[in-house]
Amino acid sequence: MTVRYGWLSPDGQTRADTRHTALGATTPAGPLQTRSGILPGTDDGQYRIGGLGMTGTTGTMTAVVQPGRAVVQGTTTQGTFPVALDENLTITFADGDAQYGRIDLVVLRVYDDESDGSGRNEAAVETVQGTPAAVPTAPPTPALALPLFQVAVPAGTSAGTGGLPWTTAITDLRTTLVSVGGILPVYNNATVAGSYRGQYQDNDTSGSLQRWSGTAWVPYPKAIGGIAPTGALTTGGYTGQYRDTSAGQLQRWNGTAWQPAVPGPAFAQSLDAGYTTSTTYTSTLTDTAVTALTLNFTAPPSGSVIIALGARAYTTSSETTTAHMSPQVTLGTTVIWSADDERAASGSGAVGKSVSTQLRLNSLTPGATYTITAMHRSTSSTVPAWFDTIYLRTDPIA
């Protein structure tokens, strides 16, 4: 017998049966139930799962299922069935329908006469034939069975027509399980809910270790207080977690987004000259390709920054008209600072002059992202106020 079972069969459980099925693997699914699944591992340790794999035989309708060990959960009263396949097993698929394709299942199935009245007490690897259809679907998994693979059988397929197209026919349905307290190597079961707070799984897709919080899998690439390495984390597990980026920047998770851990200077500039004759502040200049010069910055823990701004300013053919450049600061759509002459870098005269100013802005929300917009005006609606080499800069204050 190559498909062994370990639940004290009425017709005798051998010592070999007991040795093969001493799995010790029960990932809980409730107080009296466990997940059904396959024990992970391969001979060379390169892959997550090798047990009960399947390889099709080219040009035929047959496939070989490789050895492996698994657990199949019955109803609460039935309990859990450990199963082991200890040698290669060949299975055969029926020829394809003349008109439509179908989808078959390969399952590891347990027969328990005491519960199902089947007259059988054994385990078997079986095919469950699907129904041919224009859009075929897989048949339901039988009771007390663990699905292993789906196999698409095209219409008209047979050994005489070249057999099944094995490279595209097989869909792997196997899932993993480990003993309670073990870290589950995810395989087709990344979204399965955890069973208890503090359960761990290794998610191969995201490359992170995850902990079940009671409602969700939370990334845990490092212990609390550790810095997550580059590429290991897309969403923070807790407020105050840190990660490194590919650009070498240290970031802090604020509960909803990653922010620079140590906000540094921010700078923006425009070297394209433009003018305005507006006597009220405007961000739009004429004769320039720059729609508006803006600068985003993250407020530091102190909530205070130095804002610096400047330009090369002049007023066409006028020594009395003044060109003013002032910052407007917004948080989303809320204006924190309006442009004002008292906060302006100002210049006048037909000869261009470099003008600048520095201002301190306080009472910002640490970690929030603010926007500075360069605003401009002329004191005369008939005299263009020109601005060139415009810049904005912020520096955090400790």
Rank of each mutant, 00 (worst) to 15 (best):
T2D: 12
Q13E: 15
R19G: 04
H20C: 07
A22F: 11
A25V: 10
G30A: 13
Q33H: 11
Q33D: 12
T34R: 11
I38D: 01
D43G: 12
D44H: 14
D44C: 09
R48V: 15
L52I: 15
L52E: 03
M54K: 09
G56P: 04
A63Q: 06
V64N: 11
Q66T: 15
T75L: 12
T76E: 14
Q78W: 08
G79Y: 08
G79N: 07
F81V: 04
V83C: 03
L85R: 02
L89G: 02
T90W: 05
I91T: 04
D95M: 01
R102F: 04
R102K: 14
D112M: 00
D113F: 06
E114Y: 12
E114L: 12
S118T: 15
A123H: 00
P154T: 05
A155N: 06
T157P: 00
A159I: 00
G160W: 01
G162C: 06
T167W: 04
I170G: 00
T171D: 07
T176Y: 10
L177N: 04
V178Q: 05
S179K: 13
G181I: 12
N189I: 10
S195Y: 11
Q199D: 09
L209Y: 08
Q210V: 09
S213W: 09
S213K: 08
A216F: 11
Y220H: 13
P221A: 12
G226F: 08
L233V: 14
G237V: 07
G237L: 08
Y238M: 09
T239P: 03
Q241Y: 06
Q251K: 06
A257Q: 14
A257K: 12
P260R: 06
P260H: 08
A261Y: 09
Q269N: 12
Q269Y: 13
L271V: 10
A273K: 10
T280V: 14
T284V: 14
L285G: 00
A289P: 00
T291P: 00
A292F: 01
F297C: 01
P300S: 05
G303H: 02
S304R: 13
V305F: 01
A308N: 08
A308L: 05
T315N: 09
T316C: 04
T320N: 14
S326P: 11
P327L: 14
T334M: 08
T334R: 11
V335H: 07
S338F: 10
A339E: 04
A345T: 03
G347S: 11
S348T: 05
S348L: 02
S354D: 06
N362K: 09
N362M: 05
P366R: 03
G367F: 02
A368V: 03
T373F: 03
A374D: 06
M375R: 09
R377E: 03
R377P: 02
S378Q: 05
S378D: 08
T382A: 15
I390C: 04
